[in-house]
Amino acid sequence: MPLPYYVSPEQMMKDKAEYARKGIARGRSIVTLEYREGILLVAENPSTLLHKISEIYDRIAFAGVGKYNEFENLRIAGIRHADVKGYSYSRGDVTAKALANAYSQALGNIFTQDIKPFEVEVLVAEVSDGNGSKNEIYHILYDGTIEDEKNYAAMGGQAEEIRRFLKDHYQDAMTLDDAVQLGVRALNVTQNKTLSSKDLEVAVLDATKARRKFRRIPAEVLTQLLGAPG
């Protein structure tokens, strides 16, 4: 039996990280913004059926960039975690923090133990319950690194550029219309063309809704929002 080649751990991690980053950089980007009544998520996604943004639980949403089958698996695992926890304790005990930690553990383990790391970044957002809790946005990278973000977050291919743009243009307590327009402008920064409602997937965690806060914004409504001057 031939001996396996020796590869130093540093080199192995470096190679894996580079591999994952390359995969993610090929994908399209997603931005998240806090606005006056909740949290907005905007993804560049020409498909109306394969979602990048989805509902996890009453106040929690999920977004993923990178390889579809990989973040789809993570999304379903998240829904299972949330539903079992909510069923065995109470709905209020399901938190984005616990979920983000689980994602971080899972991605960290996959990164160190498997030959191929996941080529994904995921985002977990939780909107305030209106009783003094704050909005929470967690951003988890392919190697399990977890960051909590304030006001806005971006992930995917050109996230750095988008983040710089949002840093200059983000304002507190925007209306939903303003937030959608800002989010789309931020995604446009990295494009040669202007994105229209056909290229976008938009959803909100709307604090004004009853129990389940997640709501998709349909293309017709989005066209109106984007058409409005501002």
Partner: peptide
């Protein structure tokens, strides 16, 4: 009733 509610919501979220 609680299990049934969760069942329907779970299906809706997973399947879209």
């Amino acid at each position: 009733a609680k299990l049934f509610q969760t069942e329907l919501e779970h299906y809706e979220k997973v399947e879209g």
